[in-house]
């Protein structure tokens, strides 16, 4: 048996997040966030700001809580029974967990793209129009058509599917499906887009296309991305947060994190000593 206690990373203490977790003009700011699944604590005291029109990457080994943290930002954890969250999460200085805050409205403002592409078993058109129809964003068929086209163009998918808008969305390739999911998300024009390992199920070419798309989208949207790939984090993000066993260890400019990490754990991870 391997003696877990002896492993070096367990000896390193995490008192508080190092680096520069706080910035001015934050879109999202979280303070003292703890997340529990029943008895088990998944996130310990997370403090971080997410800047406007920036891409922030969240990295860390599996099970470190980065996905859980991301799902707190649009209250997706609400759908999981016995998950509860304490602390403050503010979007534009409004606490999103306050009573009068509405999860439906919040999710319209904070969109999400998942690890595995999950287009609805509907036509491509209906997939993109889904949110707009739900929320009543388009007042006419023509407006809806325009919205669908615009969203598909922005997601870089329109050229490929313009002749098959009424075919099923599940018939597309993996990369196309993921772009369809992005198109679906931007169709309701959110302020923030959360991406949970959006390329982990895709091949390198599709990944490159999506990464380009992310950079393009960040001009207009705030993007938070969870990724397993440090290269991806380095390529697309302005800031990077490193999570470890539920603790937010280090947050800083992406460059700084990858070239000159402050914390021993971060260094261990990015130099590939574990993870």
């Amino acid at each position: 048996m391997i003696n877990i206690e002896k492993r070096e990373e367990f000896d390193i203490k995490i008192d508080k997040t190092v680096g520069k977790p706080f910035i001015k003009d934050a879109k999202f700011s979280t303070r003292n966030v703890d997340v529990f699944y029943g008895e088990k604590q998944a996130i310990f005291d997370a403090n971080i700001d997410i800047g406007k029109n920036q891409i922030i990457a969240m990295i860390g080994p599996s099970g470190c809580g980065k996905s859980t943290f991301l799902r707190c930002l649009n209250r997706m954890n609400d759908t999981i029974q016995d998950c509860h969250i304490s602390g403050d999460i503010k979007l534009d200085d409004e606490d999103i967990y306050q009573k009068q805050q509405d999860p439906v409205l919040l999710r319209a403002r904070v969109g999400m793209v998942f690890q595995k592409p999950n287009p609805f078993p509907k036509s491509i058109y209906d997939n993109v129009a889904y949110g707009a129809k739900l929320h009543g964003l388009a007042s006419s068929k023509i407006e809806l058509d325009e919205l669908v086209e615009k969203s598909l163009i922005r997601a870089g998918l329109f050229k490929e599917v313009k002749d098959s808008l009424h075919k099923s969305g599940t018939g597309l390739s993996g990369g196309q499906q993921q772009r369809l999911c992005i198109a679906r998300t931007i169709a309701i024009d959110p302020e923030v887009i959360l991406m949970d390992e959006p390329t982990s199920a895709l091949d390198p070419i599709a990944t490159a296309v999506i990464e380009e798309l992310m950079i393009d989208l960040s001009k207009k949207y705030t993007i938070a991305i969870v990724t397993h790939s440090m290269q991806q984090a380095a390529r697309v993000s302005q800031r990077t947060a490193y999570f470890h066993l539920g603790y937010l260890v280090e947050v800083n400019d992406t460059n700084t994190v990858f070239t000159n990490p402050e914390h021993q754990l971060t260094e261990n991870y990015i130099t590939g000593r574990f993870g």
Binding site: D102, V104, H135, G136
Partner: peptide
């Protein structure tokens, strides 16, 4: 952007 939020808010009661 704001108009979107407003549109959604207007329909929210009905949807609930």
């Amino acid at each position: 952007m704001i108009s979107n939020t407003k549109k959604i808010k207007n329909k929210l009661a009905k949807r609930y």
